[in-house]
Amino acid sequence: MTSLPDTSRPGQKKLGLVIDLDTCVGCQACAVACKEWNDQGWSAPLSDIDPYGAQPLGVWLNRVHGYEAGEGANARTVHFPRSCLHCEDAACVTVCPTGASFKRAEDGIVLVDPDTCIGCKLCSWACPYGAREYDPDQGVMRKCTLCVDRIYNDNLAPEDRVPACVKACPTSARHYGDLGDPNSDVSKLVEERQGYDLLPELGYKPVNKYLPPRRRPVGEHLAAMDSVGEEGNSLTERFFRWADKALSR
């Protein structure tokens, strides 16, 4: 059923990811781990079309972008992993004509049933985050499953029952947990680091949160170099002041 479950009641489980843009180094390990797991698990196959040709096309459920933010001395690169945010008000679910796209009432995970999807692609048009990728070989839509086949998998060791991307991240930039529980580790992390929603103005209420890059004193350091030795009266500082003047002549 593509009507959304009521997620407004307190204590509603909202499983999701918290992605730390401060510590992500853009190594792509999460993207590769995602492809590797989901090409064999519940979502299999994630088709690759013309993989060695001139125009390869592959279905990936997680992509890591690179952005440059800010200008001048404060400019910095931000590695930006992007995958399904498992929105509370998921338009990709309500537009689905078949019921293949659905949001689970028990934990909020948004899934596509590959056995009933007709491949009309309307859900991908409805998603502003580009989370859904069509599989032209199978004729159905693919998306992040939050590794539903790992997190509840009794065959795995308890420490492995997390999404493959979270497990793979070498800098612990990806956190998994229940964002509906205000006392969970992920909720506390969001609180502490002022985690935010992507495009909140569109009203889809994403469950996944992003932690902003921390401020770094890069600019302050450069400013300090500019005003070197203008204060202080130690021998070294007076020497640098003299050198600065002599070199500036």
């Binding site: 690179g66 933010a69 890059p213």
Partner: peptide, 11 residues
């Protein structure tokens, strides 16, 4: 990207 407080953002 929600990074507007850092300044302009480019890919």
């Amino acid at each position: 990207t929600g990074l507007s407080n850092l300044g302009p953002v480019r890919q």
